[in-house]
């Protein structure tokens, strides 16, 4: 059983997709952590009695009215959710392509090839 050029291209493609999935996983993890931070900040703001709160923008804490700060947090949360959704979609499509390649390659090479992680 020999490897043809088409097989080699399939293997290369699979390896590329695998790298991308790993990168997306890392990004999703970071986004999730950020989302948790935002949620925590939102909860804190809800309890806060102050009219103004220091809000970190860039390197400085701007003193913003509570409502303004809440709106900014909401915006950041929405942005995070949509990024998360986009990445999850991309990941799903990559995984689908990988599953198809796995099927083809395992059908030909059986145990002689290992395509996990």
């Amino acid at each position: 059983m020999d490897v043809t050029l088409a097989d080699q291209e399939n293997i290369n493609h699979f390896s590329r997709l695998n790298t991308k999935v790993h990168e997306i996983n890392a990004k999703l993890k970071a986004l999730k952590a950020a989302a948790e931070d935002i949620e925590e900040a939102e909860n804190e703001l809800m309890l806060a009695e102050d009219e103004e709160v220091p809000y970190l923008v860039g390197e400085c804490f701007f003193h913003l009215e509570k409502e303004v700060a809440e709106a900014r947090l909401q915006e950041a949360a929405n942005e995070g959710t949509s990024q998360c959704a986009a990445l999850s979609n991309e990941r799903a499509s990559l995984l689908k392509q990988m599953a198809a390649l796995k099927k083809t390659l395992y059908a030909k090479f059986g145990n002689a090839i290992n395509l996990e992680e």
Partner: peptide, 25 residues
């Protein structure tokens, strides 16, 4: 992105005519 966010906030506050109050490092 951080720089851009600061500049945008300064511009927005200028538009509103509010004075920016901030703690800077």
């Amino acid at each position: 992105e951080k720089c851009l966010a600061s500049v945008k906030l300064l511009a927005a506050q200028k538009e509103e005519g509010t004075e920016a109050v901030l703690d800077f490092a």
